[in-house]
Simulated scan of single mutants.
Amino acid sequence: MKRYHFLLFIGIIILCSSCGTTKKFSYFQDLDEYLQKEVAMSDSVQEIRIKPNDQLAIVVSSVSAQAVAPFNLPTAAAMSPNGLSQNSLPSYLVDSEGEINFPTLGKIRLEGLSLEEAVGLLQMRLEDYVKDPIVNIQILNFRVSVLGSVNAPGPFYFTGQRVSILDAIANARDLTLYGRRDNVLLIRENGGKKEFIRFDLTNSNSVFSSKYFYLQQNDIVYVESNKEHQKDSQMSQQKQFNLTLISTAITSVIATISLIIAVSNK
């Protein structure tokens, strides 16, 4: 009987620890409660704004292709990863003053405008030359960097301009087992100042109701390691330092002995 109680006790401990581990790694643990409240996503989601060093693909079209030809850069041929030639969109670089140099129209300041506002501005300027112009703008170098405890850290480039924090993490192949799901840091530069925003991926409201849910170009996502992994890393570094120190000491002793032997043989 005692043995049975002991085994039952061990089984309960294992079950409880398993539940705790699952909860530790699960996302959106309160999702059912979140859905019942029918909480809407934040209405104050920050729009993507054009910044210096953005590469913009701008294409002007109209009923008359001949009329818009002076306002479109020639399409350049580029090599795809498989070695085949493909057409790439011509782009305009937003300079340090926030301006682009547009054919015929000259310098146009776009910094701080949303893509929709930039489209409206260009269409208004083009109406003096083209009837019913249609303008399409795309940011070609929309980059988000994901660092820290993820399986594939690095910079990621997106063709769409509606990229969420979850899209960035998915491209980095998810967090490692050591990554803290309750403390994901977003670093954003806004108007020359750094913003630091934290997400708790275990909390649905923290993610889906945040006005920072959708990322902007050049955002950085950093995933912190848990304390256990940080402690292990520190211990590994200390062990490596100790081994280096011991190796250096042994080398010095051997060199000293060799020198003594060499002097004695003279």
Rank of each mutant, 00 (worst) to 15 (best):
N82P: 01
N82L: 08
G83C: 11
S85R: 15
S85Y: 05
N87V: 15
L89N: 14
L89C: 09
S91I: 13
V94T: 02
D95L: 05
D95A: 13
E97T: 07
G98R: 05
I100V: 07
I100S: 08
N101W: 14
N101E: 12
F102Y: 14
K107I: 00
L110I: 09
L110T: 05
E111T: 13
G112M: 05
L113G: 01
S114G: 02
L115Q: 07
G120V: 03
L121D: 05
L122Q: 06
Q123V: 01
M124E: 10
R125H: 09
D128E: 11
Y129R: 01
V130D: 05
V130M: 10
K131F: 02
K131C: 04
D132W: 09
D132F: 11
D132P: 08
V135A: 08
F142E: 09
A152F: 14
A152T: 12
P155N: 13
P155S: 12
P155L: 07
Y157M: 08
Y157P: 04
Y157R: 12
F158M: 11
F158C: 08
V163G: 08
I165C: 03
D167A: 03
A170L: 07
L175H: 06
T176N: 05
L177C: 00
G179D: 03
G179E: 04
G179K: 11
R180N: 10
R181M: 01
N183F: 08
V184M: 03
V184R: 02
L186H: 11
G192M: 07
G192P: 01
K193R: 09
K194C: 03
K194H: 10
K194Y: 06
F196P: 00
I197Y: 13
T202Y: 11
V207M: 12
V207Q: 11
K211N: 13
Y214I: 09
V221I: 14
N226K: 02
E228V: 15
